[in-house]
Amino acid sequence: MKRTLLTLAIVIVAFLLNQETASAQVTVAQKPTPPEYKLSIAEKPGTDYQQIPGHWIWHRPSKMYVWVGPRWVEKKENKKWRPGHWQKQSKGWKWNPGKWEKIKKKRYFFK
């Protein structure tokens, strides 16, 4: 039974991800919590890959946030991944998606 439910959940998420998605800044009354089930994550494909943690995306057709599980992506040169986070707003919560940011080099100034 658990295996059937897990398979069904994976199929639904795959279907939703193949639909049109957008990173709209939509405010929700209550921030959602990630799903409780654990999926096995594929092995790291190579040394030039980094794991992006699970995160939320706005699914425009269903008008709801959808959870996307963790995945491996190629590292970007001179950049690091900053994970997304929920931010409290006056009328609820807004999801700020993760993004690649330039690595700031430390500069040392001597007198």
Rank of each mutant, 00 (worst) to 15 (best):
V28D: 04
Q30E: 15
K76N: 03
K94E: 14
M64C: 10
P45I: 13
Y49N: 12
V66W: 04
I103S: 06
V26Y: 05
S23I: 00
V26R: 04
I57L: 00
G84E: 09
K105C: 01
P35S: 08
G98L: 03
V28W: 04
K105Y: 03
T47S: 15
S90E: 15
V66N: 05
E77F: 11
P61C: 02
S23A: 07
V73W: 03
Q19H: 07
G69S: 12
M64H: 12
A29S: 12
L39R: 15
K44R: 15
W86P: 07
E74G: 02
K75T: 04
T47I: 13
R71N: 05
E101Q: 11
I57S: 00
S40K: 15
K38M: 08
N96V: 14
P45Q: 13
Q30W: 03
Y49V: 07
Y65S: 02
A42T: 13
K75L: 03
M64G: 10
K105E: 11
V66C: 03
D48L: 13
I52M: 11
K79I: 00
G54F: 12
G92N: 10
R60A: 08
W93L: 07
S40N: 14
K105T: 09
G92Y: 14
H55Y: 14
I41V: 15
E74S: 07
G54E: 09
W95P: 07
T33S: 14
N78M: 04
H59S: 00
I52R: 12
S62M: 07
P70L: 00
P97H: 12
H55W: 05
E77L: 06
K76L: 07
N78W: 05
H59W: 01
K88N: 13
P97Y: 08
K94I: 13
W93S: 10
N96A: 07
R71W: 01
Q50A: 14
K75E: 04
